[in-house]
């Protein structure tokens, strides 16, 4: 297990390098929320996520719904490290005709299950996937990555209510709790408070973890395997921009790419 954890940490480090390089190349994109979400995504894909990179359209694959679709660099970096995307794809991020669209798009990128861009929509989409899986008597599970700022959208709670009402047991959420949204810290913009408690009040199971502690993340993912009824939320407490000192906890890097000098510093820190 120790070895596996080390491998996952290394994969996350390589993903972080991809994230800063592709946002630098595009001179655009959202590095902060990508760097905060990447550890939980690596932990998920590296452990219990069921998918087949040689058969990305496999019907019974688990679904990953990147609701915070602006953190697309995290998704593309992960797909790159798994061998689905090429380095050249990452470097074409946000350019005309690129498979790496600004926000994740299921019609453009193999391995992407949702077309995101407008916040607050992914959990509902995931619920639709979950209900369909149940109708099909499929074992597939649906994972939805939410941003914490995104939970300000009312639709998230419409979906939370409906998921409990329809008693789906194949829907799981990870909330990337990095405490920063576009304009500023959430406590300045619109603090939502205890997100886990809110999910629980809608009948969900929830658990909080350190979203950058690979062991804790893996343990929490395995914990979900033992819950046999109802939807589940993992609240991953994270740091926006994690891994790059000048991006950490810095609202500036929500939607700003590193310049040449900053790229150099970032790559040095991630080496």
């Amino acid at each position: 297990m120790e070895d596996r954890i080390s491998e996952l940490k290394e994969m996350a480090r390589l993903c972080r390098i991809d994230i800063v390089k592709m946002t630098h190349a595009a001179n655009a994109g959202h590095p902060g929320g990508s760097l905060s979400a990447i550890d939980s995504m690596v932990a998920l894909y590296g452990t219990i996520m069921r998918f087949d990179t040689s058969n990305p359209d496999w019907d019974d694959r688990d679904r990953f719904v990147m609701s915070k679709g602006h953190a697309s660099p995290a998704m593309y970096a992960l797909l790159h490290q798994m061998g689905v995307l090429e380095e050249s794809d990452l470097m074409s991020f946000r350019t005309l005709g690129s498979v790496c669209q600004g926000h994740v798009d299921m019609n453009w990128t193999e391995g992407v299950d949702f077309s995101a861009g407008s916040l607050g929509m992914g959990l509902s989409f995931g619920l639709g996937c979950a209900l369909s899986a149940r109708m099909d008597a499929s074992e597939r599970r649906i994972w939805v990555m939410l941003g914490d700022g995104e939970t300000q959208e009312g639709q998230v709670w419409e979906a939370a209510m409906a998921a409990n009402y329809h008693n789906v047991n194949n829907l799981r959420v990870i909330v990337d709790r990095n405490r920063i949204q576009n304009d500023d810290f959430m406590e300045v913009q619109m603090e939502i408070g205890d997100i886990g408690a809110k999910f629980e009040s809608f009948g969900w199971s929830s658990r909080e973890v350190d979203g950058h502690d690979m062991s804790e993340l893996v343990e929490a993912l395995q914990w979900t395997e033992n819950i046999d009824s109802g939807p589940i939320a993992i609240i991953a407490n994270t740091t926006k921009g994690k891994g790059v000192s000048f991006m950490e906890d810095n609202p500036e890097f929500h939607g700003k790419a590193p310049n040449n000098e900053e790229l150099g510093i970032a790559l040095e820190e991630l080496s």
Binding site: G120, G122, S124, F125, G128, C129, L131, M135, E158
Partner: peptide, 26 residues
């Protein structure tokens, strides 16, 4: 009834649940 889904008075959610279902072949 097994193929009818009440989404409550929550149209935004309904539209995306429908989208998720369509992406799963419904």
């Amino acid at each position: 009834p097994e193929r009818t889904f009440s989404m409550g008075i929550a149209e935004q959610n309904m539209m995306l649940v429908a989208a998720g279902m369509a992406s799963s072949g419904k």
